[in-house]
Design a protein around this nucleic acid. Sequence first.
DNA 1: ATTTCAAACTGAACGCTGTCAAGATTGTTT
DNA 2: AAACAATCTTGACAGCGTTCAGTTTGAAAT
Lengths: 211, 211
Amino acid sequence: MHSLSRRASYHHGDLKSALIVAAEELIGESGTAHFTLRECARRAGVSPAAPAHHFGNLLGLLETLAALGFEELAKGMEEAGEPGQPPSGRIRAMGEAYVRFALQSPGLFRLTFGEKIRPSQSGNAALHAAASRAFCLLEKEVARLPACARKPESILPQTVLFWSMVHGLAILLLDQRLNAFTEGEEAGAPMDTLGRAVLDQLERLCIEKSR
Amino acid sequence: MHSLSRRASYHHGDLKSALIVAAEELIGESGTAHFTLRECARRAGVSPAAPAHHFGNLLGLLETLAALGFEELAKGMEEAGEPGQPPSGRIRAMGEAYVRFALQSPGLFRLTFGEKIRPSQSGNAALHAAASRAFCLLEKEVARLPACARKPESILPQTVLFWSMVHGLAILLLDQRLNAFTEGEEAGAPMDTLGRAVLDQLERLCIEKSR
DNA sequence: ATTTCAAACTGAACGCTGTCAAGATTGTTT
DNA sequence: AAACAATCTTGACAGCGTTCAGTTTGAAAT
């Protein structure tokens, strides 16, 4: 009689995937707050020391999760907007997708862009790749703006500007840091009136660069 | 013979201040990573349970620290730019001060704008006040932009746009998320070329609204 | 001046965390 | 069939935030 109540065999068989699934669920439920390596192991029906064999340590699991976050973000940005649309519209749609990801998966978003995740210096190649894939999606679209196509050295700063705008907006909305200033409005709207206003101005900037 | 090596009397005398000082030092040294309530107590020469009497719990100390962060930020923004400058120049200077605060006090900045700090719903009045003071500084300057003065309902969205831009830039710079894209440049420059470029565009936006 | 009282602080404990080392179990290769 | 490497468990360790009962202290009340 073993103490293995949830598993028939000593080996799990697919623990790595099971841990990732458990971690995704956990961070989707309670965010970063109650996220625990031990709880992930518990949900996968495995001892607290088991994850170490697949992820090294907690950071390893977090980086794997963050890579998934970047991929989900990139997917949302990729599918945003119509294919035949002008760059200005697509860039706006990417911004919307970015904010939507943040508001719909706050835990994963906070982890992905959190302090502990350093794509450029983690040694985790998959993480680094996923992160720059998302960035390049935006950069490629910015390069199609006529004004930037004419002046290639402006592509990068322009991309960084848009990224900063959208990222800042996403965080401020997520942390409800604008609530104090929207007294008249109905609070808690998923995509705030203010959010739409910022995205409007983002699109206007793009349209300016479109001739 | 007591076990009190660093204090003569049982009562500390000014423990609350001492804990705040210790916390500031600690977060200035190693950031959020090794920040610990017990370590703060240790540095103040006091038992691990002592801080509870002054801050309730860890979050209480963090909120006190965050309030100081907002005040330091507000002070930096207030002193930025020349008094007789047009709004566009002052807004740009505020943005510079914002980014400078983030890069010079990364630990405090991350705490102040971190997940755990919720000025609008914490019950900590001082925190809430300090947070909105900083925001209002920017809002007041935006209101002086002629285009916004003419159209008061545009003040708030315009302020949020600028705040988002600068906040996003600060975080991306702080987390070194742009490093992968600045290969040619000398890495590690305190205020990146890219940062300056974003601030340039911020100022340009303001100048547009200045007529 | 003495008593009373509330505030400040300690010491020890609890449950929790991440991580490690040693051993048990298993699938795979030789 | 034997050897091996991978996988997972068990038990332990130090450190964390927090609680609770008790000790010390300064200040207020008598």
